[in-house]
């Protein structure tokens, strides 16, 4: 029965559902996990890389080696994407244009919610104007603006968006979400949020060990002196150093064997 209403994004099924949107969300729940936590003095974003392998060249590309899932949208906004990477690239491109457009008009950084709205308007358009499929992408926006300070938003293929203190998209997002619900404290600091994010990631990721080959990591804070937003996307070496510090680093099998 449902099949009859599958092919078009714009047609409701008799139960009042839009199947293509639901399928898009399904595509996202298979994608690598992206996790965000809002702290009182910053936002932390981490993502699980799915495309890995010995032969993959991570030397070039964007921030943090391959730059597959975490992008710098504007100097005050970082986005983490889950879903079809090519769709995500196009959305990130639009987001960057929107941010620069705002800078051109108002000589100030785009507010985070306004950027989320812009992207959501675009996503919503693809659920109503036919002939095309919706974007198979969910995004987490970690940002800072003067009006509302640090913020974390989530948007899905239907064009809905919502603000969060801590949330997760992609594979195992249910598990991660309930872990976050248990462990999140109001007024958490960035330092603690980094630990919370890494611990939650290590528990929810399919792989047993955490390392820069599987993880992307970023933190948005405000510079203490200049009061300007500071977006830091970690490089692979920095991620490994951070994991080492948090005691979650990958253990080399040989050293474990030698110790035993």
């Amino acid at each position: 029965m449902a099949r009859r209403y599958d092919s078009r994004t714009t047609i409701f099924s008799p139960e009042g559902r839009l199947y293509q949107i639901e399928y898009a969300m399904e595509a996202i729940s298979r994608a690598g996990t992206v996790l965000g936590v809002l702290a009182k003095d910053g936002v932390v974003l981490a993502a699980e890389k799915k495309v890995t392998g010995k032969l993959l060249d991570l030397s070039g590309g964007g921030y943090g080696g391959s730059g597959e899932k975490i992008y710098l949208v504007n100097r005050n906004i970082i986005a983490g994407v889950a879903g079809i990477t090519s769709d995500a690239n196009s959305l990130v491109n639009s987001a960057r244009s929107a941010a620069q457009g705002h800078l051109l008009s108002y000589d100030s950084d785009i507010p985070v919610e306004l950027l989320a709205q812009r992207i959501c308007n675009m996503k919503q358009g693809y659920t109503q104007y036919g002939g095309l499929r919706p974007f198979g992408v969910s995004l987490l926006y970690a940002g800072y603006d003067e009006q509302h300070q640090f913020q974390l938003y989530h948007s899905d293929p239907s064009g809905n968006y919502s603000g969060w203190k801590a949330t997760c998209i992609g594979a195992n997002n249910g598990t991660a979400q309930s872990l976050l619900k248990q462990e999140y404290k109001e007024d958490i600091s960035v330092k603690d949020a980094i630990g919370l994010v890494l611990r939650t990631m290590s528990k929810t990721m399919d792989s047993t060990t955490l390392g820069s080959d599987k993880l992307e990591f970023s933190v948005l804070t405000v510079d203490e002196v200049t009061k300007e937003p500071k977006a830091k996307i970690y490089k692979p070496a920095e991620i490994d150093a951070l994991l080492e510090k948090e005691g979650l680093a990958k253990k080399d099998d040989d050293t474990v064997m030698a110790a035993a």
């Binding site: 108002y106 507010p111 306004l114």
Partner: peptide, 17 residues
């Protein structure tokens, strides 16, 4: 639309433009 007022610098930039 945005539930807040433009700050003077942003308004000035827009008007100038």
């Amino acid at each position: 639309r945005n539930n807040y007022s433009l700050k003077p610098s942003a308004a000035a930039a827009w008007i100038r433009r």
